[in-house]
Amino acid sequence: MTLPPIHLAGNAHAIGHGLGVFGRDAVLRHLRPLPLWQYLTSLAQTPKAVQMRQAVQTEFPRYWQEIEGLAAGLQLPLDEVFMWNCRGDYVHQQSVDGCTTLFGPASDGVLIAHNEDGFPQLRGQCALLHAQPESGLAFSSFVYPGSLPGHTLAVNECGLVATVNNIRPTRIPAGIPRQILGRATLDARTLDEAIAVVTRTDRAGAFHHTFGQAGSRRVVSVEASAEGSNVSEVQRPGGHSNHLIAPSLSRLQQRITASSGARQQCIDQSLKQLPGDLDDGVSLSILRDTSGGHLPVYRAAADDPDDENTLATGVFLISANTVEWRIYTQPNTDQPDIEGVVLLSR
Rank of each mutant, 00 (worst) to 15 (best):
M1R: 05
P4D: 11
P4Q: 14
P5T: 11
H7W: 08
A9R: 12
A9D: 11
N11R: 02
N11M: 00
H17W: 09
G18A: 05
A26E: 08
V27Q: 08
L28Y: 09
L28S: 11
W37T: 04
L40C: 10
P47Y: 12
P47E: 09
V50R: 15
M52Y: 08
M52D: 06
T58Q: 15
P61Y: 12
P61L: 13
R62F: 08
E66S: 02
E66H: 00
E68F: 06
A71W: 03
A72K: 00
A72R: 00
N85M: 09
N85S: 08
H92G: 03
Q94H: 00
S95T: 12
D97G: 01
C99W: 10
T100A: 06
T101I: 03
G104E: 04
D108K: 13
V110A: 11
I112D: 00
E116Y: 14
D117T: 10
G118C: 12
P120N: 10
Q125A: 13
L128P: 00
H130K: 05
L137N: 10
S140V: 11
F142Y: 14
P145F: 02
G146V: 09
G146L: 10
L153I: 00
A154K: 08
N156A: 05
G159P: 05
L160K: 01
L160T: 03
T170W: 01
P177W: 06
R178Y: 02
R178T: 11
Q179Y: 14
I180L: 11
T185K: 03
L186E: 05
A188H: 06
R189M: 11
D192C: 06
A194E: 10
A196H: 14
V197P: 03
V198E: 13
D202P: 03
R203N: 10
H209D: 04
G212K: 02
G212I: 01
Q213N: 01
Q213Y: 00
A214H: 11
R217E: 13
V220I: 15
V220K: 07
A226R: 01
E227H: 14
G228N: 05
E233V: 13
P237T: 03
S241A: 15
S241K: 07
N242A: 02
Q253E: 13
S260R: 04
Q265G: 13
S270N: 12
K272V: 04
Q273T: 14
Q273R: 15
D277K: 06
D280E: 15
V282G: 01
L287E: 02
R288Y: 09
H294D: 14
V297F: 08
R299I: 06
A300T: 03
P305H: 09
P305D: 04
A312F: 00
L317T: 13
E324D: 13
I327P: 02
Q335N: 07
